[in-house]
Write a protein that binds this DNA or RNA. Sequence first.
RNA 1: AGAGGAGUGGCAGAGUGGUCGAAUGCGGCAGUCUUGAAAACUGUUGUACCGCGAGGUACCGGGGGUUCGAAUCCCUCCUCCUCUGCCA
Length: 424
Amino acid sequence: MLEITQIRNNTDQVITGLQKRGIKDALNVIEQVLEVDDKRKEVQGKHDRTLAASNQLAKQIGQLMKEGKKDEAEIIKKKTAVLKAESKALGETLGNLEDEQKQLLYAIPNIPNKDVPEGKGANDNVVIHEYGDTPQLYVDAKPHWDLIKEYDIIDFDLGNKVTGAGFPFYKGKGARLQRAMVNFFLDEAQKAGYNEVQPPIMINEKSGYGTGQLPDKEGQMYHATNDDLYLIPTAEVPITNMYRDVILDEKELPKKHVGFTPCFRREAGSWGAHVRGLNRLHQFDKVEIVQVHHPEDSYSALKDMCEHVQGLLEKLELQYRVLNLCGGDMGFTSAQTYDMEVYSAAQEKWLEVSSVSNFETYQANRLKLRYRGDDKKTQLLHTLNGSALALPRVLAAILENNQTAEGIKIPEVLVPYTGFEWIN
RNA sequence: AGAGGAGUGGCAGAGUGGUCGAAUGCGGCAGUCUUGAAAACUGUUGUACCGCGAGGUACCGGGGGUUCGAAUCCCUCCUCCUCUGCCA
Protein backbone atom coordinates (compact mmCIF):
# COMPACT_ATOMS: atom_id res chain seq x y z
CA MET A 1 0.00 0.00 0.00
CA LEU A 2 0.97 3.60 -0.40
CA GLU A 3 2.52 5.41 2.51
CA ILE A 4 0.34 8.03 4.11
CA THR A 5 3.28 10.45 4.14
CA GLN A 6 3.70 9.94 0.41
CA ILE A 7 0.04 10.77 -0.11
CA ARG A 8 0.29 13.79 2.13
CA ASN A 9 3.51 15.21 0.69
CA ASN A 10 2.89 14.47 -2.98
CA THR A 11 -0.87 14.66 -3.14
CA ASP A 12 -1.12 15.96 -6.70
CA GLN A 13 1.33 13.43 -8.02
CA VAL A 14 -0.59 10.61 -6.36
CA ILE A 15 -3.88 11.81 -7.81
CA THR A 16 -2.55 12.09 -11.37
CA GLY A 17 -0.98 8.68 -10.92
CA LEU A 18 -4.29 7.15 -9.97
CA GLN A 19 -5.98 8.88 -12.88
CA LYS A 20 -3.44 7.26 -15.19
CA ARG A 21 -4.86 3.97 -13.99
CA GLY A 22 -8.32 5.13 -14.94
CA ILE A 23 -9.56 5.83 -11.44
CA LYS A 24 -12.01 8.65 -11.90
CA ASP A 25 -12.74 9.67 -8.33
CA ALA A 26 -9.07 9.72 -7.33
CA LEU A 27 -9.44 13.15 -5.78
CA ASN A 28 -12.23 12.00 -3.47
CA VAL A 29 -10.42 8.84 -2.48
CA ILE A 30 -7.30 10.76 -1.52
CA GLU A 31 -9.17 13.50 0.29
CA GLN A 32 -10.99 10.87 2.29
CA VAL A 33 -7.79 9.15 3.40
CA LEU A 34 -6.20 12.41 4.42
CA GLU A 35 -9.29 13.38 6.36
CA VAL A 36 -9.28 10.11 8.26
CA ASP A 37 -5.57 10.52 8.91
CA ASP A 38 -6.13 14.00 10.33
CA LYS A 39 -8.76 12.64 12.66
CA ARG A 40 -6.53 9.75 13.58
CA LYS A 41 -3.68 12.06 14.54
CA GLU A 42 -5.95 14.25 16.60
CA VAL A 43 -7.45 11.31 18.47
CA GLN A 44 -4.06 9.72 19.02
CA GLY A 45 -2.84 12.95 20.58
CA LYS A 46 -5.76 13.00 22.99
CA HIS A 47 -5.41 9.32 23.73
CA ASP A 48 -1.70 9.60 24.43
CA ARG A 49 -2.22 12.55 26.74
CA THR A 50 -4.92 10.71 28.67
CA LEU A 51 -2.71 7.68 29.06
CA ALA A 52 0.17 9.88 30.14
CA ALA A 53 -2.03 11.37 32.87
CA SER A 54 -3.11 7.89 34.00
CA ASN A 55 0.46 6.66 34.08
CA GLN A 56 1.43 9.67 36.13
CA LEU A 57 -1.27 8.97 38.71
CA ALA A 58 -0.44 5.29 38.83
CA LYS A 59 3.13 6.19 39.68
CA GLN A 60 1.95 8.49 42.44
CA ILE A 61 -0.21 5.73 43.87
CA GLY A 62 2.75 3.40 43.83
CA GLN A 63 4.82 5.94 45.70
CA LEU A 64 2.12 6.60 48.30
CA MET A 65 1.53 2.90 48.88
CA LYS A 66 5.21 2.47 49.54
CA GLU A 67 5.11 5.27 52.07
CA GLY A 68 2.06 3.70 53.69
CA LYS A 69 -0.23 6.61 52.83
CA LYS A 70 -3.20 4.49 51.86
CA ASP A 71 -5.86 7.13 52.31
CA GLU A 72 -4.19 9.53 49.92
CA ALA A 73 -3.74 6.74 47.44
CA GLU A 74 -7.44 5.93 47.60
CA ILE A 75 -8.31 9.51 46.68
CA ILE A 76 -6.10 9.39 43.61
CA LYS A 77 -7.49 6.00 42.63
CA LYS A 78 -10.89 7.56 42.28
CA LYS A 79 -9.48 10.15 39.91
CA THR A 80 -8.06 7.48 37.66
CA ALA A 81 -11.47 5.97 37.06
CA VAL A 82 -12.49 8.98 34.97
CA LEU A 83 -9.29 8.91 32.96
CA LYS A 84 -9.62 5.21 32.44
CA ALA A 85 -13.08 5.52 30.94
CA GLU A 86 -11.87 8.35 28.78
CA SER A 87 -8.82 6.55 27.47
CA LYS A 88 -10.85 3.44 26.79
CA ALA A 89 -13.28 5.39 24.65
CA LEU A 90 -10.48 7.22 22.87
CA GLY A 91 -8.64 3.96 22.35
CA GLU A 92 -11.66 2.47 20.63
CA THR A 93 -12.12 5.50 18.42
CA LEU A 94 -8.44 5.41 17.55
CA GLY A 95 -8.61 1.72 16.71
CA ASN A 96 -11.59 2.30 14.45
CA LEU A 97 -9.90 5.18 12.67
CA GLU A 98 -6.75 3.14 12.15
CA ASP A 99 -8.79 0.32 10.68
CA GLU A 100 -10.69 2.69 8.47
CA GLN A 101 -7.49 4.25 7.24
CA LYS A 102 -5.95 0.87 6.54
CA GLN A 103 -8.99 -0.26 4.60
CA LEU A 104 -8.89 2.90 2.51
CA LEU A 105 -5.18 2.49 1.85
CA TYR A 106 -5.61 -1.17 0.91
CA ALA A 107 -8.11 -0.09 -1.73
CA ILE A 108 -5.67 2.32 -3.41
CA PRO A 109 -3.45 0.77 -6.08
CA ASN A 110 0.17 1.63 -6.68
CA ILE A 111 1.14 4.78 -8.55
CA PRO A 112 2.39 4.08 -12.08
CA ASN A 113 5.93 5.12 -12.79
CA LYS A 114 6.47 8.02 -15.23
CA ASP A 115 7.47 5.66 -18.05
CA VAL A 116 4.17 3.79 -17.89
CA PRO A 117 2.12 4.65 -20.98
CA GLU A 118 -1.36 6.13 -20.76
CA GLY A 119 -4.15 3.77 -21.64
CA LYS A 120 -7.25 1.92 -20.61
CA GLY A 121 -6.60 -1.69 -21.46
CA ALA A 122 -4.60 -4.35 -23.25
CA ASN A 123 -4.86 -2.55 -26.59
CA ASP A 124 -2.99 0.45 -25.24
CA ASN A 125 0.07 -1.50 -24.16
CA VAL A 126 3.18 -0.47 -26.04
CA VAL A 127 5.35 -2.98 -27.87
CA ILE A 128 8.92 -1.95 -27.06
CA HIS A 129 10.83 -4.90 -28.45
CA GLU A 130 10.32 -7.74 -30.90
CA TYR A 131 12.51 -10.72 -31.55
CA GLY A 132 12.52 -13.56 -34.05
CA ASP A 133 10.56 -14.43 -37.14
CA THR A 134 7.18 -16.05 -37.32
CA PRO A 135 7.77 -19.74 -37.92
CA GLN A 136 6.58 -21.21 -41.19
CA LEU A 137 4.47 -24.18 -40.19
CA TYR A 138 3.95 -27.17 -42.34
CA VAL A 139 0.63 -27.81 -43.97
CA ASP A 140 -0.89 -30.06 -41.35
CA ALA A 141 0.12 -27.92 -38.39
CA LYS A 142 -2.19 -28.22 -35.38
CA PRO A 143 -2.81 -26.28 -32.18
CA HIS A 144 -1.22 -27.80 -29.08
CA TRP A 145 -4.48 -29.27 -27.74
CA ASP A 146 -4.48 -31.60 -30.73
CA LEU A 147 -0.75 -32.29 -30.60
CA ILE A 148 -0.80 -33.37 -26.98
CA LYS A 149 -3.41 -35.99 -27.81
CA GLU A 150 -1.63 -37.15 -30.90
CA TYR A 151 1.60 -37.79 -28.99
CA ASP A 152 -0.13 -38.60 -25.67
CA ILE A 153 2.02 -36.23 -23.63
CA ILE A 154 -0.62 -34.25 -21.74
CA ASP A 155 -3.95 -35.70 -20.65
CA PHE A 156 -6.73 -33.32 -19.72
CA ASP A 157 -9.38 -36.02 -19.50
CA LEU A 158 -7.39 -37.94 -16.96
CA GLY A 159 -6.83 -34.79 -14.91
CA ASN A 160 -10.52 -34.14 -15.17
CA LYS A 161 -11.32 -37.53 -13.71
CA VAL A 162 -8.81 -37.34 -10.89
CA THR A 163 -9.21 -33.68 -9.98
CA GLY A 164 -11.17 -31.46 -12.32
CA ALA A 165 -10.90 -29.11 -15.27
CA GLY A 166 -7.61 -27.27 -15.52
CA PHE A 167 -5.55 -29.90 -13.71
CA PRO A 168 -3.87 -31.89 -16.49
CA PHE A 169 -1.61 -34.92 -16.25
CA TYR A 170 1.74 -34.59 -18.02
CA LYS A 171 2.76 -38.00 -19.31
CA GLY A 172 5.90 -39.64 -20.64
CA LYS A 173 7.93 -37.25 -22.72
CA GLY A 174 5.53 -34.47 -21.75
CA ALA A 175 6.38 -34.94 -18.09
CA ARG A 176 10.09 -35.15 -18.85
CA LEU A 177 9.97 -32.01 -20.95
CA GLN A 178 8.36 -30.18 -18.05
CA ARG A 179 11.10 -31.32 -15.72
CA ALA A 180 13.72 -30.35 -18.28
CA MET A 181 12.36 -26.84 -18.59
CA VAL A 182 12.24 -26.37 -14.84
CA ASN A 183 15.86 -27.45 -14.49
CA PHE A 184 16.95 -25.31 -17.40
CA PHE A 185 15.23 -22.23 -15.99
CA LEU A 186 16.64 -22.81 -12.52
CA ASP A 187 20.16 -23.33 -13.84
CA GLU A 188 19.99 -20.18 -15.92
CA ALA A 189 18.81 -18.18 -12.93
CA GLN A 190 21.58 -19.66 -10.84
CA LYS A 191 24.10 -18.47 -13.44
CA ALA A 192 22.55 -15.01 -13.29
CA GLY A 193 23.22 -14.82 -9.56
CA TYR A 194 19.86 -15.79 -8.15
CA ASN A 195 19.89 -17.72 -4.91
CA GLU A 196 17.62 -20.74 -5.15
CA VAL A 197 14.91 -21.39 -2.59
CA GLN A 198 12.20 -24.00 -2.35
CA PRO A 199 9.37 -22.27 -0.53
CA PRO A 200 6.20 -23.68 0.98
CA ILE A 201 3.34 -23.72 -1.49
CA MET A 202 0.80 -22.82 1.14
CA ILE A 203 0.82 -19.45 2.86
CA ASN A 204 -0.93 -17.88 5.81
CA GLU A 205 -3.13 -14.84 5.83
CA LYS A 206 -0.39 -12.42 6.81
CA SER A 207 1.68 -13.38 3.79
CA GLY A 208 -1.33 -12.88 1.57
CA TYR A 209 -1.60 -9.33 2.86
CA GLY A 210 2.13 -8.78 2.57
CA THR A 211 2.30 -9.09 -1.19
CA GLY A 212 -1.19 -7.80 -1.89
CA GLN A 213 -3.22 -10.90 -2.74
CA LEU A 214 -5.40 -10.10 0.25
CA PRO A 215 -7.76 -8.49 0.94
CA ASP A 216 -8.49 -7.97 -2.73
CA LYS A 217 -8.14 -11.25 -4.56
CA GLU A 218 -9.48 -13.70 -2.02
CA GLY A 219 -11.58 -15.45 -4.63
CA GLN A 220 -8.58 -16.15 -6.83
CA MET A 221 -6.80 -18.35 -4.32
CA TYR A 222 -7.63 -21.84 -3.12
CA HIS A 223 -8.31 -21.61 0.58
CA ALA A 224 -7.86 -24.50 2.99
CA THR A 225 -10.32 -23.26 5.57
CA ASN A 226 -9.60 -25.87 8.25
CA ASP A 227 -6.15 -24.46 8.75
CA ASP A 228 -6.75 -21.06 7.21
CA LEU A 229 -4.00 -21.47 4.64
CA TYR A 230 -3.98 -20.54 0.98
CA LEU A 231 -2.41 -22.36 -1.95
CA ILE A 232 0.00 -19.97 -3.58
CA PRO A 233 -0.98 -18.35 -6.89
CA THR A 234 2.72 -17.66 -7.51
CA ALA A 235 6.04 -18.21 -5.74
CA GLU A 236 6.25 -14.43 -5.47
CA VAL A 237 4.12 -14.70 -2.34
CA PRO A 238 6.23 -17.00 -0.15
CA ILE A 239 9.56 -15.74 -1.51
CA THR A 240 8.82 -12.05 -1.06
CA ASN A 241 7.34 -12.76 2.36
CA MET A 242 10.68 -14.16 3.48
CA TYR A 243 11.43 -10.48 4.02
CA ARG A 244 8.31 -9.54 5.92
CA ASP A 245 9.20 -7.54 9.06
CA VAL A 246 12.86 -7.48 8.13
CA ILE A 247 15.33 -4.62 8.36
CA LEU A 248 18.29 -5.26 6.08
CA ASP A 249 21.65 -3.63 6.24
CA GLU A 250 22.33 -1.56 3.15
CA LYS A 251 25.43 -3.67 2.56
CA GLU A 252 23.39 -6.86 2.18
CA LEU A 253 21.56 -5.51 -0.84
CA PRO A 254 20.41 -6.56 -3.33
CA LYS A 255 18.69 -9.85 -2.53
CA LYS A 256 18.05 -12.09 -5.51
CA HIS A 257 16.07 -15.32 -5.27
CA VAL A 258 14.73 -17.88 -7.66
CA GLY A 259 12.20 -20.54 -6.81
CA PHE A 260 10.29 -23.22 -8.63
CA THR A 261 6.76 -24.02 -7.47
CA PRO A 262 3.46 -25.15 -8.79
CA CYS A 263 0.98 -22.28 -8.84
CA PHE A 264 -2.72 -22.51 -8.11
CA ARG A 265 -5.34 -20.17 -9.46
CA ARG A 266 -9.06 -20.48 -9.26
CA GLU A 267 -9.51 -18.19 -12.26
CA ALA A 268 -13.09 -17.68 -11.17
CA GLY A 269 -15.19 -16.42 -14.02
CA SER A 270 -12.43 -16.19 -16.60
CA TRP A 271 -13.02 -19.27 -18.73
CA GLY A 272 -13.95 -19.15 -22.37
CA ALA A 273 -13.17 -20.37 -25.82
CA HIS A 274 -9.97 -18.33 -26.03
CA VAL A 275 -8.43 -20.12 -23.07
CA ARG A 276 -8.31 -23.65 -24.42
CA GLY A 277 -5.72 -26.24 -23.56
CA LEU A 278 -2.61 -24.99 -21.83
CA ASN A 279 -3.49 -21.34 -22.20
CA ARG A 280 -5.13 -21.23 -18.80
CA LEU A 281 -4.90 -23.79 -16.00
CA HIS A 282 -5.81 -24.06 -12.35
CA GLN A 283 -2.46 -25.61 -11.57
CA PHE A 284 0.73 -24.87 -13.45
CA ASP A 285 4.47 -24.78 -12.89
CA LYS A 286 6.52 -21.64 -12.78
CA VAL A 287 10.04 -20.55 -12.00
CA GLU A 288 9.92 -17.16 -10.36
CA ILE A 289 12.64 -14.59 -9.80
CA VAL A 290 12.37 -12.10 -6.95
CA GLN A 291 14.63 -9.20 -6.06
CA VAL A 292 14.82 -6.80 -3.13
CA HIS A 293 16.55 -3.56 -4.01
CA HIS A 294 17.68 -0.19 -2.82
CA PRO A 295 15.22 2.39 -4.21
CA GLU A 296 17.95 3.97 -6.30
CA ASP A 297 18.72 0.97 -8.47
CA SER A 298 15.40 -0.88 -8.64
CA TYR A 299 14.77 0.23 -12.21
CA SER A 300 18.09 -1.01 -13.48
CA ALA A 301 17.22 -4.28 -11.73
CA LEU A 302 13.89 -4.33 -13.55
CA LYS A 303 15.78 -4.00 -16.81
CA ASP A 304 18.16 -6.81 -15.86
CA MET A 305 15.27 -9.07 -15.02
CA CYS A 306 13.63 -8.39 -18.38
CA GLU A 307 16.87 -9.15 -20.14
CA HIS A 308 17.20 -12.39 -18.26
CA VAL A 309 13.74 -13.48 -19.33
CA GLN A 310 14.38 -12.41 -22.92
CA GLY A 311 17.60 -14.43 -22.87
CA LEU A 312 15.62 -17.53 -21.89
CA LEU A 313 13.18 -17.06 -24.75
CA GLU A 314 16.00 -16.51 -27.21
CA LYS A 315 17.76 -19.66 -26.07
CA LEU A 316 14.52 -21.53 -26.58
CA GLU A 317 14.40 -20.06 -30.10
CA LEU A 318 10.97 -18.55 -29.63
CA GLN A 319 9.62 -15.49 -31.32
CA TYR A 320 8.59 -12.99 -28.68
CA ARG A 321 7.75 -9.39 -27.99
CA VAL A 322 7.99 -7.18 -24.94
CA LEU A 323 5.12 -4.95 -23.86
CA ASN A 324 5.30 -1.94 -21.62
CA LEU A 325 1.93 -2.23 -19.89
CA CYS A 326 -0.24 0.86 -19.81
CA GLY A 327 -1.73 2.35 -16.65
CA GLY A 328 -5.10 0.72 -17.20
CA ASP A 329 -3.73 -2.80 -17.71
CA MET A 330 -1.17 -2.99 -14.93
CA GLY A 331 -1.61 -5.10 -11.82
CA PHE A 332 -2.93 -3.43 -8.68
CA THR A 333 0.35 -3.45 -6.76
CA SER A 334 2.77 -2.69 -9.59
CA ALA A 335 4.51 0.59 -10.41
CA GLN A 336 5.67 -0.69 -13.76
CA THR A 337 5.26 -3.98 -15.58
CA TYR A 338 6.73 -5.50 -18.71
CA ASP A 339 5.00 -8.51 -20.23
CA MET A 340 6.77 -11.00 -22.45
CA GLU A 341 4.65 -12.75 -25.02
CA VAL A 342 5.62 -15.60 -27.30
CA TYR A 343 4.01 -16.08 -30.66
CA SER A 344 2.05 -19.22 -31.18
CA ALA A 345 1.99 -19.81 -34.93
CA ALA A 346 -0.67 -22.48 -34.81
CA GLN A 347 -3.06 -20.40 -32.71
CA GLU A 348 -1.95 -17.28 -34.53
CA LYS A 349 -1.78 -15.28 -31.35
CA TRP A 350 0.58 -13.93 -28.71
CA LEU A 351 0.71 -15.77 -25.39
CA GLU A 352 1.86 -14.08 -22.19
CA VAL A 353 4.65 -16.15 -20.66
CA SER A 354 6.19 -13.69 -18.25
CA SER A 355 5.31 -10.57 -16.35
CA VAL A 356 8.13 -8.61 -14.77
CA SER A 357 7.26 -5.86 -12.29
CA ASN A 358 8.73 -3.28 -10.00
CA PHE A 359 6.50 -2.68 -6.99
CA GLU A 360 8.70 0.09 -5.61
CA THR A 361 7.73 0.51 -1.94
CA TYR A 362 4.15 -0.67 -2.34
CA GLN A 363 4.73 -4.24 -1.15
CA ALA A 364 7.58 -3.22 1.15
CA ASN A 365 5.25 -0.93 3.04
CA ARG A 366 2.86 -3.78 3.66
CA LEU A 367 5.69 -6.13 4.45
CA LYS A 368 7.51 -3.62 6.65
CA LEU A 369 10.60 -4.46 4.63
CA ARG A 370 13.22 -1.79 5.23
CA TYR A 371 16.92 -1.10 5.12
CA ARG A 372 19.15 0.90 7.36
CA GLY A 373 21.40 3.35 5.58
CA ASP A 374 24.46 5.26 6.72
CA ASP A 375 22.26 7.77 8.52
CA LYS A 376 20.91 4.90 10.69
CA LYS A 377 17.38 5.65 9.58
CA THR A 378 15.16 2.90 8.29
CA GLN A 379 13.64 3.28 4.85
CA LEU A 380 11.42 1.12 2.72
CA LEU A 381 13.03 -1.05 0.07
CA HIS A 382 11.82 -1.84 -3.42
CA THR A 383 10.59 -5.31 -4.37
CA LEU A 384 10.50 -6.79 -7.86
CA ASN A 385 9.54 -10.07 -9.38
CA GLY A 386 9.03 -11.84 -12.66
CA SER A 387 8.28 -15.18 -14.18
CA ALA A 388 11.33 -16.89 -15.58
CA LEU A 389 9.32 -18.64 -16.81
CA ALA A 390 5.77 -19.94 -16.55
CA LEU A 391 5.75 -23.33 -18.23
CA PRO A 392 2.42 -24.11 -19.90
CA ARG A 393 2.37 -21.44 -22.57
CA VAL A 394 6.06 -21.83 -23.30
CA LEU A 395 5.34 -25.50 -23.74
CA ALA A 396 2.38 -24.73 -25.98
CA ALA A 397 4.53 -22.49 -28.15
CA ILE A 398 7.33 -25.04 -28.39
CA LEU A 399 4.91 -27.79 -29.35
CA GLU A 400 3.16 -25.69 -31.95
CA ASN A 401 6.09 -23.84 -33.46
CA ASN A 402 8.41 -26.83 -33.59
CA GLN A 403 6.03 -29.33 -35.08
CA THR A 404 7.03 -31.07 -38.29
CA ALA A 405 5.78 -34.01 -40.25
CA GLU A 406 8.30 -36.16 -38.32
CA GLY A 407 7.25 -34.99 -34.90
CA ILE A 408 8.06 -32.17 -32.51
CA LYS A 409 11.62 -30.98 -32.37
CA ILE A 410 12.96 -30.17 -28.89
CA PRO A 411 14.92 -26.88 -28.70
CA GLU A 412 18.62 -27.65 -28.67
CA VAL A 413 19.24 -26.03 -25.33
CA LEU A 414 16.79 -28.40 -23.66
CA VAL A 415 18.11 -31.63 -25.16
CA PRO A 416 20.77 -32.13 -22.46
CA TYR A 417 17.94 -31.88 -19.96
CA THR A 418 15.36 -34.04 -21.73
CA GLY A 419 17.67 -36.70 -23.07
CA PHE A 420 15.68 -36.83 -26.30
CA GLU A 421 15.49 -34.66 -29.41
CA TRP A 422 12.08 -35.53 -30.73
CA ILE A 423 8.59 -36.13 -29.53
CA ASN A 424 7.23 -38.52 -32.13
C1' A B 1 -2.24 -36.94 18.42
C1' G B 2 -1.20 -37.33 24.16
C1' A B 3 1.97 -35.61 28.52
C1' G B 4 5.43 -32.05 30.25
C1' G B 5 8.53 -27.56 29.56
C1' A B 6 9.54 -22.89 27.26
C1' G B 7 8.86 -18.18 24.31
C1' U B 8 12.27 -11.13 26.98
C1' G B 9 16.35 -6.28 22.78
C1' G B 10 21.29 -8.55 16.98
C1' C B 11 22.64 -13.01 20.25
C1' A B 12 22.97 -15.10 25.26
C1' G B 13 20.36 -14.22 29.60
C1' A B 14 18.22 -11.67 34.43
C1' G B 15 13.68 -9.89 35.89
C1' U B 16 7.34 -13.26 39.09
C1' G B 17 2.54 -6.73 40.50
C1' G B 18 4.95 -0.42 41.22
C1' U B 19 10.12 4.80 39.01
C1' C B 20 11.21 -1.70 33.82
C1' G B 21 11.84 -0.12 27.37
C1' A B 22 13.75 -3.63 30.74
C1' A B 23 20.07 -5.70 34.69
C1' U B 24 24.41 -8.13 32.93
C1' G B 25 27.55 -10.38 29.22
C1' C B 26 28.71 -10.85 24.02
C1' G B 27 28.36 -8.50 19.42
C1' G B 28 27.88 -3.55 16.63
C1' C B 29 29.19 1.75 16.33
C1' A B 30 32.18 6.15 18.03
C1' G B 31 36.34 7.68 20.83
C1' U B 32 41.03 7.41 24.17
C1' C B 33 45.71 4.94 24.13
C1' U B 34 49.08 2.94 19.88
C1' U B 35 53.58 3.84 14.17
C1' G B 36 49.30 0.44 13.00
C1' A B 37 46.41 -3.50 14.93
C1' A B 38 45.01 -6.24 19.22
C1' A B 39 44.09 -5.68 24.32
C1' A B 40 42.31 -2.27 27.87
C1' C B 41 39.30 1.86 29.02
C1' U B 42 35.12 5.54 27.98
C1' G B 43 30.68 6.56 25.61
C1' U B 44 26.84 4.78 22.57
C1' U B 45 23.64 0.97 20.55
C1' G B 46 15.34 -1.64 19.38
C1' U B 47 10.88 -0.33 16.35
C1' A B 48 6.66 2.53 15.27
C1' C B 49 3.31 6.51 16.01
C1' C B 50 1.90 11.71 17.96
C1' G B 51 4.35 16.59 18.69
C1' C B 52 7.75 22.66 15.70
C1' G B 53 10.09 21.29 20.14
C1' A B 54 10.51 19.87 25.16
C1' G B 55 8.51 15.56 25.35
C1' G B 56 4.65 11.79 25.14
C1' U B 57 2.38 6.91 23.77
C1' A B 58 2.61 1.74 22.40
C1' C B 59 5.31 -2.82 21.93
C1' C B 60 8.85 -8.40 26.60
C1' G B 61 5.34 -14.70 20.79
C1' G B 62 -0.27 -12.91 18.96
C1' G B 63 -5.11 -11.53 20.91
C1' G B 64 -8.27 -10.67 25.16
C1' G B 65 -8.97 -9.99 30.59
C1' U B 66 -7.97 -8.67 36.04
C1' U B 67 -5.71 -4.14 38.46
C1' C B 68 -4.93 2.67 40.10
C1' G B 69 -0.60 0.07 37.91
C1' A B 70 1.19 -6.13 34.10
C1' A B 71 7.31 -8.59 31.05
C1' U B 72 5.37 -10.45 35.88
C1' C B 73 -1.49 -12.81 37.50
C1' C B 74 -5.83 -15.14 34.47
C1' C B 75 -8.04 -16.88 29.60
C1' U B 76 -7.12 -18.14 24.56
C1' C B 77 -4.39 -18.95 20.17
C1' C B 78 0.44 -19.66 17.82
C1' U B 79 5.46 -21.40 17.78
C1' C B 80 9.63 -24.16 19.67
C1' C B 81 11.93 -28.09 22.87
C1' U B 82 11.65 -33.10 25.53
C1' C B 83 9.17 -37.85 26.07
C1' U B 84 5.26 -41.28 24.13
C1' G B 85 2.43 -42.58 19.75
C1' C B 86 1.91 -42.31 14.42
C1' C B 87 4.11 -41.53 9.67
C1' A B 88 6.76 -40.12 4.07
